[in-house]
């Protein structure tokens, strides 16, 4: 599992192993200021990062807190 979120510290705190920075709390995979086609590209780009992390060994980082 890869988690896409805009609040990365919380994801890491609870021990998520593969965390990808989202684009905003209210639109983790979007940006209403972009034209629809551009916005979809942004979404695809973040998704590709998440998919890449799924193919890599995840650092066995211990959760904080």
């Amino acid at each position: 599992m890869a988690q896409i979120t805009s609040v990365v510290p919380v994801a890491k705190m609870v021990g998520a192993n593969r965390v990808i920075q989202g684009h905003g709390i209210v639109h983790p995979l979007g940006n209403p200021e972009l034209a629809p086609a551009e916005e979809k590209r942004l979404r695809e780009q973040i998704l590709r990062q998440a998919l890449e992390s799924l193919q890599k060994e995840a650092g066995g980082e211990a959760p904080q807190g």
């Binding site: 709390i25 209210v26 639109h27 983790p28 995979l29 979007g30 209403p32 916005e39 979809k40 979404r43 695809e44 998704l47 590709r48 998919l51």
Partner: peptide, 29 residues
Amino acid sequence: GYDTRYVEQDPDRLVPVDALRELEKEGVV
């Protein structure tokens, strides 16, 4: 817990079906 208008406008901003379908077409997934 958050302002849901942007997701209600376009749910792909939360559940990215449109972009993931493209990646499915391309054979990435």
